[in-house]
Design a protein around this nucleic acid. Structure first.
Lengths: 246, 246
DNA sequence: CGAGGGTTTGAAGTGCATCAAATAGTGTGG
DNA sequence: CCACACTATTTGATGCACTTCAAACCCTCG
């Protein structure tokens, strides 16, 4: 499934349907929509580079975007992998207009980019929008705290288990069928491990909790068993959806 | 040096001198100062518990506060360790008034606590304050991203080296004398390793970069050598102070 | 001086990484 | 539609890093 959905429209997008802009003023939406640019990114295409001057920020329409940091010798640390509906490059506002991370398309992606300058004005003049941004930033922060916890307390198979559980609806169903949203290699780096380790850890997870693996489709027969296996080494218990107050 | 500085004053604190409140309105400051409570916390004293209802947030006057998460079996993951000037418990605003982490005094501490309810109103009504909070949240987020990078790319001795470098003034001086701000055991957990590992890794660091260790006083003869040793495995290069735009 | 916590050291085990190579899968051009 | 090229994934063998368990040491403080 490597296809990019075709978009007929080339006109300015309707920003009011995008969660990120929901609390922003109509004036701002109009202004920014006029300057929106659609960008189709092939797999591996680099969108922004850590340290570059941030003139624009990006909304993901489709595909997956990897945020990462890279050392001089080329090794990289994946910070996060975002999908449709998310925004990135916006926090550069608070870093002297310098992107704090690099971003590239992990899967073919469709992006909308907007001028960053207007964002600052809107944040400063529209309290509702500022609060919305604070709220999403807080949610993100919580997520990162949890990520750090996982790296500290969970071993490789448990991290995979946890990752799989977070891909389910968490609605109490006994079993679930999961589709890995991107490469196993990428999942591995997302979880801070090598591809080889991922492969072996998944095999171990299969042996220990009885899930079935066929390519990137994974069937969890016994969600309870998997959650017990993974969530034992975590401070939050299974239905661990991030519930965030208004 | 286990002494708590004596504070004669028992009157309401002057909030305008606290960075966190700088952008807040005088009315808010007065209101909140009236309800301020000073709290002296012994080492190990638990201040807030993850999951508890958040009625107040805390400003650190002195000492060190450990933020952490704990699993049911008692193992804990340290999220961060804060010192004087920092605020914690404030982000509960954005998590349905539930503390997203636990906090305890890592060293004897003096805290000021304030009612959380007023904070929400101020954030919503004072754009300047909201932006200031956004800014500090963004800085924090960046820090956590870097933390994750360190855990991913640096080994134990390198993480210690990086930690030490961040305790220096980073002003280009050739050598530096560092005082560990708290227990080695705590430094270890802050860096995501066991005390034994910390001890051995510090010994290795000493052997490899020629620093001198006497208890919790560490003399770095050759800062350049240490930074080369540690920062090779990191995306940011040595004088890596978080410089954040206005 | 003795108690208790912090720190170091030793010996052994575990988990993940690394290097190397085989296998499976996918997209390409013929 | 098939063979080839290329990438993703798996598997094997081995090594290193960190942990674990245990015990000694050290330092501070009553």
């Amino acid at each position: 499934m490597r296809m990019i959905e075709a978009h007929g429209e080339r006109t300015s997008p309707k920003l009011e349907n995008i969660a990120f802009f929901r609390a922003s003023s109509p004036a701002f939406q109009q202004q920014i929509a006029r300057e929106a640019v659609e960008l189709k990114a092939e797999r591996r295409k680099v969108i922004i580079l850590s340290g570059d001057t941030a003139s624009r920020f990006y909304f993901i329409r489709a595909g997956w975007i990897k945020l990462y940091q890279e050392t001089m010798d080329g090794t990289e640390a994946v910070i996060d992998i975002l999908n449709a509906g998310h925004v990135f490059g916006d926090t550069a506002l608070f870093h002297g207009d310098i992107y704090p991370y690099s971003a590239e398309a992990a899967e073919p992606a469709v992006l909308l980019s907007f001028p960053a300058a207007a964002l600052k004005a809107e944040v400063e003049s529209n309290p509702k929008f500022a609060v919305a941004m604070l709220s999403s930033m807080a949610r993100y922060r919580r997520q990162q705290d949890q990520e750090l916890e996982h790296r500290t307390l969970q071993n490789a198979p448990q991290r995979i288990g946890c990752f799989l559980l977070r891909l389910t609806r968490q609605d109490g169903a006994e079993s679930a069928v999961i589709h890995l949203p991107y490469d196993k290699t990428l999942v591995a780096s997302r979880l801070g491990m090598k591809p080889e380790t991922f492969s072996r850890a998944l095999a171990k997870l299969r042996a220990d909790t009885g899930l079935e693996v066929q390519g990137s489709t994974i069937t969890v027969r016994d969600v309870a068993s998997l959650s017990h296996y993974a969530c034992t080494a975590c401070s939050s218990q299974y239905p661990c959806r991030d519930v965030i107050g208004s």
